[in-house]
């Protein structure tokens, strides 16, 4: 068994990661940390784990060496402690944004302050297996992914990979997101009477995850503007990305189908959903709750050369903890789907 600890396990992604790790056939959870909940049983914070573990939270200073370390710390925390954290385990997966960007200047632009430990950025591999599987196999340090970035990137990636994007026209993407994206901490605006029933534009422009999408597009030498807008809706889990991508003149629907199939036919967690029959004919986040699947689809408008690319995920799974475990499986040389087989619920 491989020993694993989670630093910062009291939040939603940390709890989700703990749920997955406890059920993983090759992982043994050693320690989980929370400064605030030190000494308390984890199942009082993550009640779905009752009778699944008797673990208690410990302070991070009590963490011992292990084989694999997951970091579920708030953004900005891991970058200042990474030298010390790296002494605790040979392999680290950091779910925060601290090591997602390869270009340090992106932190000034998108996070509003410089990266405090930029020398480490080049040591991390961006943790989206659909784009970086080969590098992940030999990686020791893997970054997490932004949930909205994941949904957007997976929606448009086939067109980028196939060279079909008309970069001069830019990409416009709207993401509709559930409340768990906001994390476990509450605020006045998340008080139930205020939050319930909203369709709240919270980042019409300038969403931080845009940086990850731009970085992904550069892998295929696509340099274009990405206009990302985020709207909070009345779900707990889920992201639906609706991306408007203009393709090069002469592109036909057949070419778009081919691009999507070439990108995803062999991907274990990406399914193409564009159906003429059935209850959910386009990607729908609702039926993905708790699963690591990303459902993608598209519709092509030949009059304007616009492709509406869609992607649905569970933000806590494919958008965070699920992909983190998928990366760990790849790093360890295991079957990529281990511990991630849950297909979701229907009806829900």
């Amino acid at each position: 068994m491989v020993s694993v600890s989670i630093i910062g396990a009291s939040g939603y992604t940390g709890g989700e990661l703990l749920r997955l790790a406890l059920a993983h056939p090759h992982l043994e959870v050693k320690q989980v940390t929370s400064e605030r909940l030190d000494g308390q049983f984890v199942h009082f914070t993550h009640p779905n784990l009752r009778k699944r573990t008797q673990l208690k939270f410990v302070r991070s200073e009590a963490i011992e060496k292990c084989d694999l370390l997951f970091l579920g710390l708030p953004h900005g925390s891991a970058m200042g402690r990474i030298d010390q954290l790296a002494t605790l385990a040979d392999r680290i997966v950091d779910l925060s944004a601290d090591f997602r960007l390869r270009d340090a200047s992106g932190y000034d632009t998108w996070y509003g302050k410089p990266h405090s430990n930029a020398a480490w950025l080049g040591k991390f591999v961006y943790g989206l297996p659909e784009l970086h599987r080969a590098a992940l196999k030999s990686a020791k340090y893997v970054s997490g992914v932004g949930c909205n970035a994941t949904a957007t990137t997976l929606a448009i990636w086939p067109l980028a990979a196939a060279g079909l994007i008309d970069a001069a026209r830019g990409i416009i993407c709207e993401v509709k997101v559930g409340s768990s994206e906001g994390g476990a901490a509450s605020a006045d605006s998340t008080h139930h009477p205020e939050r319930a029933g909203v369709m709240r534009s919270f980042a019409p422009t300038g969403h931080r995850h845009t940086a990850e999408v731009l970085q992904a597009l550069k892998l295929k030498n696509v340099v274009t503007d990405v206009h990302l807008s985020a709207t909070a809706v009345d779900n707990v889990r889920g992201v639906l990305a609706t991306a408007h991508v203009f393709v090069t003149p002469g592109t036909q629907e057949k070419d778009v189908w081919k691009a999507f199939r070439e990108a995803y036919n062999n991907e274990p967690f990406v399914r193409i959903v564009k159906e003429k029959a059935g209850l959910y004919r386009y990607p729908e986040p609702k039926i993905l709750s708790g699963s690591n699947y990303a459902d993608v689809g598209f519709e092509f408008d030949p009059k304007t050369n616009r492709v509406v690319c869609l992607c649905a995920i569970d933000n806590l799974m494919k958008g965070a903890a699920g992909t983190a475990l998928q990366c760990a499986n790849v790093m360890m040389g295991w079957d990529e789907t281990l511990g991630l087989e849950f297909p979701g619920l229907h009806p829900i």
Partner: peptide
């Protein structure tokens, strides 16, 4: 003709209705 997938057909008759396993089109 809808999604351009290859559909495998086994002993089908003229005018028979089938369904694409990929996109569900009749």
């Amino acid at each position: 003709p809808e999604c351009f997938a290859d559909v495998t057909l086994n002993k089908v008759m003229q005018n028979e209705i089938t369904q694409c396993p990929g996109c569900g089109a009749e």
